[in-house]
Structure formats: C-alpha cells, structure tokens
Design a protein around this nucleic acid. Sequence first.
DNA 1: TTTGAAATATGATGAAGGTCATTTTTTCAA
DNA 2: TTGAAAAAATGACCTTCATCATATTTCAAA
Lengths: 229, 229
Amino acid sequence: MLEKSHKHITCSTCVGRKNSLLGSLCNEEMEHVNAHKACNYYKKHQSLFLEGSFPRGVFCINEGMVKIFQRGDEGKEQIIHIAKSGEMVGFRSMFSETPYRVAAETLEESNICFISKDDFLNMMDSNPVLRNGIIKELSKELSDRADFITNMAQKSVRERLAFTMIILLEIYEKEPINLSREDLANFVGTATETLIRLLKDFKEEGIIEVHTRKISVLNKEKLFAIAGK
Amino acid sequence: MLEKSHKHITCSTCVGRKNSLLGSLCNEEMEHVNAHKACNYYKKHQSLFLEGSFPRGVFCINEGMVKIFQRGDEGKEQIIHIAKSGEMVGFRSMFSETPYRVAAETLEESNICFISKDDFLNMMDSNPVLRNGIIKELSKELSDRADFITNMAQKSVRERLAFTMIILLEIYEKEPINLSREDLANFVGTATETLIRLLKDFKEEGIIEVHTRKISVLNKEKLFAIAGK
DNA sequence: TTTGAAATATGATGAAGGTCATTTTTTCAA
DNA sequence: TTGAAAAAATGACCTTCATCATATTTCAAA
C-alpha cells in the first residue's frame, strides 16, 4: 500500500528492511533511525539528487523504484542501476566526499526515507555488521560494473538487451517489466529506435509478450542463450 | 631499482607506500605487515590471480604495473584498470567472499608483496583510518566505472581512445605509454586494427609521437577536446 | 647475423546500428 | 469524450567499425 502523504513510515514494519543493508540494526539503532529520518512521498519522475550536488545523507527506498543514471555529453542518459524497495541509494559518493557523479530519479511513485549523513556515519562507526555489509555491497557492485563494462565493449545490442532483461526480470520479479522504451534503451546503451526494433524481434521469436509498454518474458532460457552464459 | 630476486622488500622504504591506502598504518602495524607479508618478483605477463579463483589476500605493488581484466565470451580481454606502484589489487572480491570475476597480470617486471586475508582484515578491524580509506577507494572506483560505462555506451572509439590516453598519461606520468596495441585496444574496447588506424590518425594530427610501441603525447589539450570535457 | 614468430600495419568488405523523417498509438488533462 | 502532446513504431539511409586477408616490421633466440 503506497502512502501518498508525507506520513511517517515505521522502520519496524518496512517491507524492504529485512533484505536490506539495515537488516542488521539492533532495536535501539532502528528506533534511533526511525526517530531521526525523514519520510517522503515521491511522484513518478521526481529527482532524488542531481549530478554535481553534494551528498547529505542516504535514501532508503520503502516502496517504489529509482533509476541511477549519468548524462553523457549530448544529454543522453545512461542508466547504471535500478534500485527498488529495500535498497539504499546515494551513499556511494557520500563516502568519497565528492559531488554526485550520477543522478537518481523515481521511475514510479515511491515512498523514500532519508537518513542524514551524520546519523548514518555514526551507525557505521558503531556497527561492524553494517559496516561490513556496506563494504561487501560496494565490492559486489564493483564486480557488477566490471561485467557491465565488458558487456558494453564486446556484446551486440541484441545480446545486451537479453542480458538487461534478465536483470530486469530479477528487479520486477513476478511483475511485467514496466519501463519506457527510452529508459530501456538507455539501460541497454543503444538508440530508442534500435531497441524498439529488437523488441519486435523478441516478440516475433516468442521470447516476450508486450502489452502497451509492459513486457512479460515468456522464455527465460532463450534470453540466457542470447545473452551468452 | 627493481629487485630481481625474491629478497624481502621493506615496507618502510617502499616508494609507493606514502600515497597508498597503507599510508595510514602506524609503525607497529607496518612492522607487523612487514614481518608477515611475502615478497615476490614477477616477470612480464605473469598472473597474480585468475577469474574464478578464490581471494586469499591482497597484492601490494611495490614496483611495476598490473592489468586488471575480464575475458569476454569469445576470449577477448576487456581491461578494467591498470594498477601501478603503491596500489593494492585483489581485495575487492575478498570482501564479497566470492570468486574473482576479474584476473590480474603484470604488464612489466614487477615486485609485488602479498598480505594474507586474515592479516589484512584484522588491520581493517582495528584501524578506522585504513577502513575509511578502503571504503572511500571503493566508492571512488564505483564512480569511475560509471563513467567508464557511459563512455562505452555513448562515445565513439576515437573519443574513447582519447579518454583512455588521458588516463594512461596519469598512470605513466612522465614516461611514454608502453602498452601493446592489443592491450590498448582491449582497454579502449575496440578491435586492434581499428586502434592502430586511430593511432595513425592521432600521429598525423600531431597529437602523439610513436617510437615502435612507445607512445608520447605531444598535445594533451587536443586529447581533452576529443575526449569531450 | 639469421631466422622464425609475434606484433604491427594496411587494405577491402560488409554488417550492425545510429540518425533523421514520418506515421501511428497511447496517455492525460480539459 | 476529445484533442493535444508524448511515446512508440516504422522506413530509408549512411557512418562507424569489426572482420578477414595479407603485408611488413620488430624482437629474441639460435
């Protein structure tokens, strides 16, 4: 149930928390976060932060989806990651004490809480499990991005689309993939027209089914085969 | 001076240490590392670790250069990073407790020390400055890789070559860039033939000067202009 | 110094995919 | 419900770059 007002969202009942980096907090810590955080309802296409701005804390997604992207020289977006319920965004640049080099924007209406930099860093100092979880997460993402780079460099758009759809399948779980063609193209790293043509191919090959903008995967195995491994 | 035997390299006299993540160690910690680490001389093109193997510790480059790369489906390498004196490699996967998804290999003869996982993790537990340095480094690399992805997705090979040469300029400092055409192509993410043709263009445009395999940059500004920002 | 292998270089060719123009469909607010 | 704007789809065209073939140069070992 999406809370459309600015009402407070209680950490202890947050659906995403159990699988999140904050799952390790003790009751006392959680209560502290709960008392100090700010909760916000975001409409579709609202910005969390912009490239170039300075991090003031971390965003914790209660419900909804957020794209993390960079704008290239000609203004075209490259989506780096799509974050969903339970994930935290905005803490990577916070550690390096540099301006954001990526931007974040909701893909759908979302409830997102904000924990201040000080509160978060204090918790990290005092909670080794949280700390190690963060380090692990950063390391995992580094590996993911290495894969991303290699895919970009060596795979065809068709292969990358298949790979991207597998990732989106995990993000959207049972739901059909619900992204604009442009966002999907910007995730795959191609032109919108090319993406649309490839979606048509996939449709004709019986790999996917499309209802207006929503895409359902019918044949996951074929996707794996195309993506290569 | 490159130590060509397996002689011990003393941390306190290590040229790279002052700028390294281990710069924050106190004397006691440094002595402990010094007493427990293993030092090795590597020939050119020797492997530090392979994709799929399990991390047992971190490699600390005293002298030399190491390429970090992934092998794509057709066996073609994609170079993700080139590490030099003072840098540590191999700790990213160590934190995530997963097999390496990248491989590391020397680009030239090198002296590289090895610190065991336990020793390193213990230090991280007890030294907050080291810990924060690591987190900061991981975050910085995440940003760099986001740039890398966006470049791959949106820039032409010519633009990427210029960008890559700027990075290499920082790595090689005053020295001419000394990489095989194949490695350079695998860093830029293109075919070796295409890379060679572009180098010829750069040469004709007076941007670089080439002596056999060594490349000197004559006009850094032009490189920046081509790379775009 | 010679010789063979590896690295570098060049040429020819074609496919992948980007761009621009235009049409069709969907969405959303009035 | 309708009309306008945004999104999606299609077509035509052309540039970039990968691939394959082959030539030339460099390097190291005999």
